[in-house]
Amino acid sequence: MNLLNISGSPHVHSDESTKKIMWRVNMALIPALLVAIAYFGINALLVSIIAVVSCVLFQWLIEKFILKVPTTICDGSAVVTGLLLAFNVPATPSMMWIVIIGALVAIGIGKMTFGGLGKNPFNPALVGRVFLLISFPVQMTTWPVVDGIFPMHFDLATGATPLAAFKEGSLGSDVTLWDAFLGHIGGSMGEVSALAILIGAAYLCWKKIISWHIPVSFIGTAFIFSAILWLVNPDQYMDPLMTLFTGGIMLGACFMATDMVTSPMAKSGQLIFGVGCGLLTIIIRNWGAYPEGVSFAILLMNSVTPLINRWCKPARFAE
């Protein structure tokens, strides 16, 4: 007979694991990936593959040769970072090498310098994305023209995102709300289709990986705030629904603000976090230098997450 195992109670465990959570997030990102491939063609697939492979590779190299700790690439967290990074860049050929730099920054600076998974204060994919946006402003805002589903030709004619166009004073009248919802608009490859993102988010909610608090408060705040602005002056400010479906609000609210590591734990804290993200996003979009503010908003709120955690405690049973 084997030796008896001894431990303190409890002696059973739910079948949850970090690995399962990460791979489920990856599953949830698949609809958005498929839409990106459908609209942007083979470029989207290649950029995604390069981003994922380089993220995993950098994590492996850093763990193996610099930190000299057991490698944890199988837990799927680097894959999530890679996919999210790819989703935040335009699907253009030049991205195929730029995204490698982004992966190095995301994994190397965004994650491993703090000690790896679970210890990073900022969402690694957003760190990579913001680094690229500042370092390669031209390439990062060169959007491929969306040319019907499954485009067969890849010219470098560039279009504008609805947000950029609006910033310059002209929202193309040809962009309808329905297009924006389905993703038939310009933009970073993962953020175009609100529908695909919502499908993934619904899956995550069902699997209890995310709760509704952050996405709803984020999107709700953005909607209400932009609606107020729009009601004040419909000419200067964007339609609130259009605001939600263009740019990265959906992707950010459902996948990046909800990142477990960098968001608050208590439900009340998550609501504060979501509201903060929503407010900052609309402020940056309307009065900031960039047409898009989701990444900055989330990173800023990431930085106050420890404070929110300190302040928002769960309701004690005994009080």
Partner: peptide
């Protein structure tokens, strides 16, 4: 009966 090896806390709450 066996416990699975411990991994890093991901602050999931």
């Amino acid at each position: 009966a066996r416990r699975n090896p411990e991994t890093a806390c991901i602050r999931c709450g």
